[in-house]
Amino acid sequence: MQWRRPESVGAPASASRDARPAVEDEALRFEDVTFGFAGSARPAIRDVSFRVARRKFVAVIGPSGCGKSTILNLSAGLLSPVRGEVYFGGRKVEKINAEAAYVTQSANLLPWLTVERNIGLALKFRDVGESERRERVARWISLVGLEGFEHHYPRELSGGMQKRASIARALVYDPSIVLMDEPFGPLDAITRLNLQQELLDIWQQQSGTVVFVTHDLSEAICLADEVIVMSHGPATVRKVLPVPIERPRDIGAILESPEYASIYRELWELFHAELDTSRKVAA
């Protein structure tokens, strides 16, 4: 087994952690967070610490079932840590995080509302006035390319279009952080590539903080500024890897670039080592 020792490449990430940058630059911070469901045999994640700077796009990858989604649920305030603390914008997350938006694996649009009303729902909850609501919904509908489908119901849309609608629904209220849980997982390869590029383009205009869970190495490299590699469950942070590819990005160009290849190799080796240990644990 030949793979580079993590310490040799991990310098920038750990250095930034030691430097403790000002809280204003920080969106999300996990401090030695352990979580497991009541009655479970072992924790889902153990002593997880990481920090996400504001306006960064961070991908979280790891073997399946390693507690990646748990990290998002903790960030959203849907779960509370058993031990350790989750901070958002310097404040401890104790109830549902109102500044977060969630994009799940299935689109999870409300089947009884039209596309327009689905997208406008969060604005309604926030008591945004009728005219402003209309304006913002219309802007997002056009940003995700759903013009003409405002009055359609979710089941009348293809999987890719439902996903666009759910992304618009999450971004329409300008959340400080967007939590994405394998959002493109169930889509076909072409739609996936399209949506990845569209997400890049949209994010480059908006550039809020994004935490993006995936098990697709290529997706992580193409989209993220930083990749957090999780170890086999109970998950801990194995390594934080920067992705020094400049923006604006074009997925077609990235896939052919030498940086992509070297980052991919590095991630693959890390990932492979994890899979190896998980296999040994299982055996």
């Binding site: 969630y102 409300l110 729902l121 969060a122 909850f125 926030r126």
Partner: peptide, 11 residues
């Protein structure tokens, strides 16, 4: 999941 989504959206 729908319940959670609506709650995160501020419902």
């Amino acid at each position: 999941e729908l319940v959670e989504i609506v709650r995160v959206m501020g419902g």
